[in-house]
């Protein structure tokens, strides 16, 4: 059995009969129990890769193995073991916080007791107690993001995909989210985070830099900073992207 929780081989996704090469041959390997940050400019192919890894988007070519299952063939078997917080909030705006959490808990086959225990725990960790019975439409952006994360975790998945989870979130909450991600990792979960905010990537165990649908560099933040002799990931990103970054 592979040591990797996520393994892709020559993963390709083209749109419009090849005119748009969103993902262009990625070999990605994410180990069990690590936080892997996928970073890159907007449109670099991060979300497309996440969609393929979550089994909701069919690749043009290449292979994907997630938790030992081949995708997209085995995506149904994967569904109970993976949690996803998409880039958009993806919550039911006319349901309350608790109704959203409870609905997804039922889809994952949890008992009422399990939903209550795990749901209350997540509500407490993500500080949603006061908003428990508030209809999601009336939540702030940060609150909606917390709810989205709570839904992704209700069934205690082994692998969690956070697609731009910290977008539109204030620095205090962002720091809180990262502490939370680390606590999940310490519990043995594997986390794949995408972000275009470079400074937060340094908090990950390993980072992968994406550009033009390709993984251009990969390693732990400290390894990469010393390899390229830069002070932070933002400098690294600018160095590796060059002037082209602005055109992406």
């Amino acid at each position: 059995m592979s040591e990797y929780v996520i393994e892709t081989k020559e993963l390709v996704k083209h749109y419009n009969k090849g005119a748009v090469k969103a993902v262009n041959g990625i070999d990605l390997r994410v180990r069990k129990g690590e936080i892997y940050a996928f970073i890159g400019a907007n449109g670099s192919g991060k979300s497309t890769t996440i969609d393929m890894i979550s089994g909701t988007l069919r690749p043009t070519s290449g292979e994907i193995y997630v938790l030992g299952l081949k995708l997209p063939k085995d995506r149904r078997r994967l569904s109970n073991r993976i949690g996803i917080a998409p880039q958009e909030y993806a919550v039911y705006l006319d349901l309350t916080v608790w109704e959203n959490i409870s609905f997804f808990g039922r889809l994952y086959g949890l008992s009422r007791k399990e939903i209550r225990e795990q749901g209350e725990k997540l509500i407490s960790i993500l500080k949603l107690e006061e908003k428990r019975d508030v209809v999601a439409e009336f939540l702030s952006g940060g609150m909606k993001r917390r709810l989205s994360i709570a839904i992704a975790l209700i069934h205690q998945p082994e692998l969690i995909l956070f697609d731009e989870a910290t977008v539109g979130v204030d620095p205090i909450l962002r720091a809180y989210f990262w502490d939370f991600f680390k606590s999940l990792r310490d519990d043995g979960k594997t986390i794949l985070v995408t972000s275009h905010v470079m400074d937060e990537a340094e908090k990950a165990d390993r980072i992968g830099l994406m550009r033009h649908g390709k993984l251009i560099e990969e390693g732990s933040p400290s390894e990469l900073l010393s390899k390229y002799n830069v002070r932070n990931v933002e400098e690294l990103f600018l160095l590796l992207s060059g002037d082209e970054n602005i055109n992406e």
């Binding site: 569904s79 993976i82 993806a90 086959g109």
Partner: peptide, 14 residues
């Protein structure tokens, strides 16, 4: 419209 489709499709619901 609510982007909940993607999330729904990653759950076990057929």
């Amino acid at each position: 419209v609510n982007h909940t489709k993607t999330r729904l499709y990653t759950t076990p619901i057929t």
